[in-house]
Amino acid sequence: MAWMSWTLPTALFFIGIGVILVGMTAWQIASPCVERRGFLPLDTTRGDRLFIGLLSSAFIHLVFVALTDANLAVATVLCAIWMIILMRWG
């Protein structure tokens, strides 16, 4: 495992992703969701919206890093808000 050179932040990041995936699976089994259409021009399930949210969050972070010198936490907060909007009304 040493060659993978883990760091605390990346470990937390992957644990977080893992927890989200397990949580989404449990949620899906407990109350299966149907496809619906929100403000996105697509029929999406919860899982689709999660994926769209994560991918767009990654791009938001990248653009944020490239264009500003501000603390990255600002981008993370922005993304969290975006995720909530997307999951609820997307």
């Binding site: 699976t25 899906q28 899982g47 689709d48 994926f51």
Partner: peptide, 9 residues
């Protein structure tokens, strides 16, 4: 099954 489409993707 749960997550089939995402798995495929």
């Amino acid at each position: 099954f749960v997550g089939d489409k995402h798995m495929f993707f």
